[in-house]
Amino acid sequence: MAIALERATGRKPRLLWHRETDLSGLDLIVIPGGFSFGDYLRAGAMAAHSPIMGAIRRHAARGGYVLGACNGFQILTEARFLPGALLRNASLRFLASDCHLRVERSDTAFTGHYQTGAVFRALLAHGEGSYFADGATLDRLEGEGLVAFRYTTADGRLAPAANRNGSARAIAGIFSPNLRVLGLMPHAEDLVDPVVGGTDGLPLFQGLAAALSA
């Protein structure tokens, strides 16, 4: 993630320690993937109570941008920044593979460098990535345009085989109502280099950098 942010912004991101409580002066806080506290309880459940989370909550309340990827998405739902939960994959196995994501709206800071309906490749790597929320919440997310990405086939169609973790309504990522908090299960940050699998994920970070410096 740090590599992707540096590649898109030209600057090394500041790395935060989980006990920090002063996050003033930051545009964007990224909670990356990575088995916080080993995820021996529910994924993200321990980290949601880290000392830093209060400061991230204040940052979000001020209208600051937050990106939670993979374990970061799990932490954001556990901390109730975003609704719903990430359940164990439908296969009940860890799943690491390519997937395709359809961009559901392009008028956000995170998706500005994609077209609505565009499909890009990303990498899945999680054991608990099956997005779940009750029907009313899902309806609200869809009604308010807060679904960011869906798992689709390479040509943008919904299909059970393309939704390998079994997410509700094939949801791969969701926004907060102000569109400034994004939780995203796959790893766009691992596809930012032509030598390492491709650059499908780079527009997300370039768009974000452009939006934040605008």
Binding site: L95, A96, D190
Partner: peptide
């Protein structure tokens, strides 16, 4: 089997399992 192993964490995996006779990992 490979689908249960994270082969790309770290962002340096140039050749993933099954795509080449040897894995290739770049030195960051």
């Amino acid at each position: 089997v490979w689908d249960q192993y994270d082969a790309t964490i770290g962002g340096q995996t140039v050749r993933r399992p099954g795509t080449a006779d040897a894995a290739v990992v770049r030195v960051e």
